[in-house]
Design a protein around this nucleic acid. Structure first.
Lengths: 213, 213
DNA sequence: TGCTAATAACTGACTGGTCAGTTATTTATT
DNA sequence: AATAAATAACTGACCAGTCAGTTATTAGCA
């Protein structure tokens, strides 16, 4: 019996890798690395399992590609913002407004969850994420904070710890929603949480908090 | 050939379950649920694989036992602290000093990592953790914060979001150390981080921050 | 106090199912 | 007709869970 109409597949060598990575992200993010089935990734990508192996050598390679994809854009984004910020408080407020938007589009939280969860099984991924994203971001912030301390804008204290304090509210909110909203928890309004958190921490960090919005 | 000396095992029905749960925690925490091998848990517990099934019906049951073990003591601890705190700022400072000690003894961070990572595969565990630990803790804090707002101690703002702001620094620090210290990252001094974070957030929350330590 | 029978904690080889990865074959495309 | 993208049936390794047999321990009896 010939369906005659549509061909049963198309040859689309150029588009497949991206589609497969996107599908792999979806499945890895919801199941974790080990529990993810290649059949499911293939189905999600609209392709057979064998076809995956035309573009990736192993399941681990797919995982690496997914994690790598979540890396480059974010760091560039943050460092650009840091470079162009006049005062420290402005940088913090700008990021607090922008990051929730980024998090809505790109599944940072899902990827971060995976990196955290699989760090012991894929130490080289944890290393790449630390060396290329988390470390530089903390360092960038700490540097900006230390400079602000030198100018007398920010109170004394460990700049790295201040960086963690600033970022932690948003991150914890994202992880909370990702983890507990599916089981019925009232989710946080992330942009609102980010705004209040950053204003609160800034008010605690700055020597002269000035006008609170 | 008779070894004659030591017997090849001891019968210790009473102690086994606890030992197995401890071993399972070690292995689950380092490998994640799916990648953990029962042979390894058995070896860690000093027992054969078959013996595990004398005490637990399935691998999932062992996971449940591990997660449950990390639950009860913590909530009781926090609610006791909340009940006996005179002013809100004291409660926050007390917990900031005590929680790092708790985290050193009990592997809260490791268990939390597992719950987060496996939440999609074990929704009922995520639900239990939310309903019995995370939710009540947030609610307890939010309640204390709302009361402090009514007394004019704390500035206006969403009490739940304030609760997240307070707790997030410590939690993120714990997760950071757990995830990135093994790959060479400089770990945070958790008690110091907790102290600075809570003082910073308190200074941003309180209407009259008063004397800063 | 020693000897033996009965019990159940424990072992480790085995099995059945699952799934990452391979390959023979089909199909779209030039 | 030639090429290579894609499929789908296949293989082999791995591992959760089982169970027949072994051994430590206790109970009963002398």
């Amino acid at each position: 019996m010939l369906p005659a109409g549509q061909p049963k597949f198309r040859r689309r060598k150029a588009d497949r890798p991206e589609e497969i990575v996107r599908a792999a992200l979806t499945v890895f993010a919801s199941k974790g690395f080990a529990a993810a089935r290649l059949e499911e990734i293939a189905a999600e990508a609209g392709v057979s399992k064998g076809a995956l192996y035309l573009y990736f050598a192993t399941k681990e390679d797919m995982f690496r590609a997914v994690v790598a994809q979540g890396l480059a854009p974010n760091l560039a984004f943050i460092q650009a913002a840091a470079a162009s910020a006049p005062a420290f408080a402005d940088l913090a407020r700008t990021l607090a407004a922008l990051l929730p938007q980024v998090a809505e589009r790109a599944p940072i939280a899902a990827i971060a969850k995976m990196v955290i969860g699989e760090a012991r099984n894929f130490p080289e991924l944890a290393r790449v994420w630390h060396d290329q994203l988390v470390g530089p971001v903390i360092a960038t912030f700490a540097h900006a904070i230390a400079a602000a301390q030198a100018r007398g804008e920010v109170r004394p204290g460990d700049p790295r710890a201040y960086a963690v304090s600033l970022a932690s509210g948003l991150l914890l909110g994202l992880v909370f929603n990702e983890t507990f909203a599916p089981v019925g928890a009232a989710p946080f309004d992330i942009p609102a949480l980010a705004r209040q958190h950053v204003e609160t921490v800034l008010a605690g960090m700055l020597t002269n908090p000035g006008a609170r919005p």
